[in-house]
Nucleic acid binder design. Sequence first.
DNA 1: GAGTTACGCTACGAGCCGTAGCGAAAGAGC
DNA 2: GCTCTTTCGCTACGGCTCGTAGCGTAACTC
Lengths: 223, 223
Amino acid sequence: MSRTGRPRNAEADEAILDATRSALVDVGWGKLTMGHVAERAGVAKTTLYRRWANKNELVLDAVAALFDELQLPDRGSLAADVEGVVMEFGALLDRPETKTALMAVVAESTHDEALRLRIRHAIVDRQKRLVELGRERAQARGELPLDSDDKAGEDAAARNADLIFDVIAGAVVHRTLVSGEPVDTSWARTFTALLIGGLPAAMQQIRTEAAAGQPDQKRAGSV
Amino acid sequence: MSRTGRPRNAEADEAILDATRSALVDVGWGKLTMGHVAERAGVAKTTLYRRWANKNELVLDAVAALFDELQLPDRGSLAADVEGVVMEFGALLDRPETKTALMAVVAESTHDEALRLRIRHAIVDRQKRLVELGRERAQARGELPLDSDDKAGEDAAARNADLIFDVIAGAVVHRTLVSGEPVDTSWARTFTALLIGGLPAAMQQIRTEAAAGQPDQKRAGSV
DNA sequence: GAGTTACGCTACGAGCCGTAGCGAAAGAGC
DNA sequence: GCTCTTTCGCTACGGCTCGTAGCGTAACTC
């Protein structure tokens, strides 16, 4: 690459991404302008354009960094793992900067193939890895049946992981952004019951919780 | 209201909404401008601003009309009902005008309370009614347990409907727009198995389908 | 007719976009 | 030291879009 010449100011990258995030919080996606971000970051507008081609990619990078925080520690059971990642993901989406930016870039990506690939690489693939990890752990614990070793088995495993991913991420995103309701412990537990045990199990879970009067905030749902 | 004076041109409303939808297909949300829509509709830009305050509300109305197509005919079983509505919703979201517009307006709504209410009224509430209808039908068929008649029962029913709604709509939206994969019969059937019977049932469903070599495109999933 | 409202058209200031051109700064290689 | 290369901040620009104001005309009610 370029080893000669004046090196790029690495601090400027962080300053720009920080400025982008805080600008998202203040004015949202629609009224976010490159000029404002540059001013906030204490950087010339031209510098900004030298590093990002347009607003879409800049904002994507700014929010993608936040997704790196997502972890999947072994919480001992499939239910606990699901509940944990749902809560984490819900908290992440509840932040105003991700709220306004994530759907906007996805919307733009329907007319921008390069952006679509960038989203897939920076966000989707990383989340999907968590799903696969959780699935394998559950299989190792005997909570889920094993896949066969042949080609059909691998294919089935992949389709299964895709499905789980869309259901978990989709439900959390929809509840947070469309329904506008919080992803709290109670919801996470009911959702987990639904995912693992299906509709009847979820309805049973709700009934149990209602009977207890106050939802027990500590105990994790059981399989 | 105003019964005197020159009446509004009703055809212009349709022409503007049509122009908005076709413009969404061609240029997407980001590059859609009020000027272009007006020109396409054969209408003065000022006329457009007399009816809609901004791009957000115009686009929302243009796509909200498409959601009226969603129906929930009685298909005989809970599984068939879910599968049917998933396919319908998937097809709706696969259209380029909804694809690019829906997430964009939701993104904008995080910083525009009026828009949020408008989305809720024009889209969310109507979809949710379908969920409640399907749930009541399933309970009448004995496929799902009944809710108790007291206040706790009503509350549980409402929470349950919200959960189902977020899971169904969220999963379809996420698969279509984020994962970028089609909502076909095979996926709809597996998703339905997951929703009704939980993860083990879904994995079993995938295995059965794989064993059959070619997925059976006709038979609806069983409870 | 008179009164009222919608329409098309033009024009406008304001703001943002993305780029070009400049001189200065900061490093690498000799 | 010196030269070469790249990045930096700054200014300026044409082009586009926004949302509004002003005007004369059209359509309808009373």
